[in-house]
Design a protein around this nucleic acid. Structure first.
Length: 441
RNA sequence: GACCCUAUCGUCCAGCGGUUAGGACACCGCCCUUUCACGGCGGAUACACGGGUUCGAAUCCCGUUAGGGUCGCCA
């Protein structure tokens, strides 16, 4: 194993990138980075009917979003191209002829089948260990078709040929391929090629243990992109599904993961996918962002919601207040409307706060106190409110609640004093006046 | 059905012959607090079952059960 590591991710363009596939790609990528090897992307698009350019784009977008750049493959080229199987007809024909000349193939109604050696083949797996497969029973393991009557190629054959041609040294793939591996080993031997080392990683299941399919929550990488997840967070979460640094750390820098990653340390049991924990990690990344980074990340959602924030300079101070409340980026615009529009609907709970006996009276006294405040900032606003509360012999909350309701139409929000500071005296007093007349009588 | 993989809190991850079985998410209390969050403190919950091996098993072996995978002219 002195030769440089060459690993590959070989997806079929089906129109979406499954988290399981993404994790497979990630583990391959990590292994390449860890060993200083190469990560190759190969598109297995032999099924012409199903493959479209859009479906392929989803894979490229998903991998790039996760930061999994490929050293060789479509769009970047490389010495072993082309990297789409649909363009490698001549290569397959050459290998096919070799098998045919070696008497490994026979015609079965127009399809070509590969004749298995009838013996025990042992897979020596990086993750699962040595696993023997018995080919002696023809019923259980019938010979394998490698070419259809229409001349198109079957997965097993092109997969092996390309692994040979692309000089792949390690194949890290889903456990669903474990049973295919002895068949592939037979093909390697028939072609006189040294097989790569294999490592089969367990599948990802739903939280309840059922098989994860296309429509299940969190199954598609596109859903994370659209949902405003932090790519590094999703990547981090995926790393933790079946692998760990063997201590209790969970939020890990990519460099650290690259340094520690070992395929042999991957768990052998299937992991169940927990979107809640993924969300928590994502939030950890959100918390760690600078205000500027957070603004960049949240902006698309704010714009999409049509919040008339004006300039970035006006937006940033508001986000500074609200950032700590936000667990998911798409929630962001929900915290903003009343900062940028005087017209807003009062929530039912907020109305109740203002209808409470004495609420308008305390609000009026606060309004008066604020109207004459020398300096308009969070500290002075707080001091004034507390002074008035004390004078009236009530808890601060008695003033805070109606004030918040009057100014924002809500019962929850960021720190009241900071909110009032950002809103400015003029708007605050006007909104208090408006609430006073709205809820009078 | 046959073959293969797997089995620690609800979930993820530690543990690799001797631990009060640890951490995280979620959950439940309490505290903090102007709301909601955050934070702090505390709690409940796990070695699937049955046999071995051993002075001693979550850890090793064998069964059973359960889950998953594969048995295509899909990939």
């Amino acid at each position: 194993m002195s030769q440089p590591v060459r690993v590959r991710f070989a997806p079929s363009p089906t129109g979406y990138l499954h988290v399981g596939g993404a994790r497979t790609a990630l583990f391959n990528w990590l292994f390449a980075k860890h060993t200083g090897g190469k990560f190759i992307l190969r598109v297995e698009d032999t099924d012409k009917a199903r493959n479209t350019a859009e479906a392929l784009q989803v894979i490229y977008d998903g991998l790039r979003w996760l930061g999994l750049d490929w050293d060789e493959g479509p769009q970047v080229g490389g010495p072993h191209g082309p990297y789409c199987q649909s363009e490698r007809e001549a290569v397959y024909q050459r290998y096919f002829d070799r098998l045919k000349d070696g008497n490994f193939l026979y015609d079965d109604g127009g399809a070509w089948r590969f004749r298995f050696a009838r013996e025990v083949v042992e897979v020596d797996d990086l993750i699962c260990g040595k696993v023997p497969f018995d080919f002696n029973n023809l019923e259980i393991t019938p010979d394998m078709t490698i070419r259809r009557p229409d001349g198109s190629w079957i997965f097993h054959f092109v997969n092996v040929v390309d692994d040979i041609e692309m000089e792949i040294t390690h194949v890290i793939r889903g456990e669903d391929h474990l049973s295919n591996t002895p068949k592939h080993l037979q093909l390697f031997r028939a072609l006189g090629a040294e097989p790569p080392r294999y490592g089969h990683i367990p599948l990802i299941l739903n939280k309840d243990g059922s098989k994860m399919s296309k429509r299940d929550q969190g199954a598609s990488i596109t859903s994370y992109i659209d949902g405003g997840y932090v790519p590094a967070a999703v990547r981090n979460y995926l790393c933790l599904l079946g692998w760990s640094p063997k201590d209790d750390r969970e939020k890990l820098d990519l460099d650290e993961i690259v340094r520690l990653f070992e395929p042999s340390k991957i768990n052998r049991k299937a992991a169940q996918f927990d979107i809640e924990k993924c969300n928590w990690l994502n939030w950890q990344y959100l918390v760690a962002m600078s205000l500027d980074e957070f603004t960049d990340a949240a902006l698309p959602f704010i714009e999409k919601a049509g919040i008339p924030f004006g300039t970035r300079a006006a937006l940033v101070p508001v986000l500074a207040m609200v950032k700590e409340k936000i667990k998911q980026l798409p929630e962001t615009p929900g915290w903003l409307p009343y900062f940028f529009a005087d017209e807003f609907v009062f929530e039912k709970d907020a109305e109740e706060k203002l209808r409470k006996p004495g609420a308008l009276e305390t609000l009026a006294s606060l309004r008066e106190g604020y109207a004459s405040l020398a300096e308009w900032n969070a500290a002075s606003l707080e001091a004034k409110l507390k002074e008035l509360a004390k004078a009236r012999g009530v808890k601060a909350g008695e003033l805070v609640h109606p004030a918040r309701a009057a100014v924002s139409g809500r019962t929850v929000g960021p720190s009241l004093y900071h909110m009032l500071e950002v809103l400015g005296r003029e708007r605050v007093l006007a909104r208090m006046d408006r609430a006073a007349s709205m809820f009078a009588g």
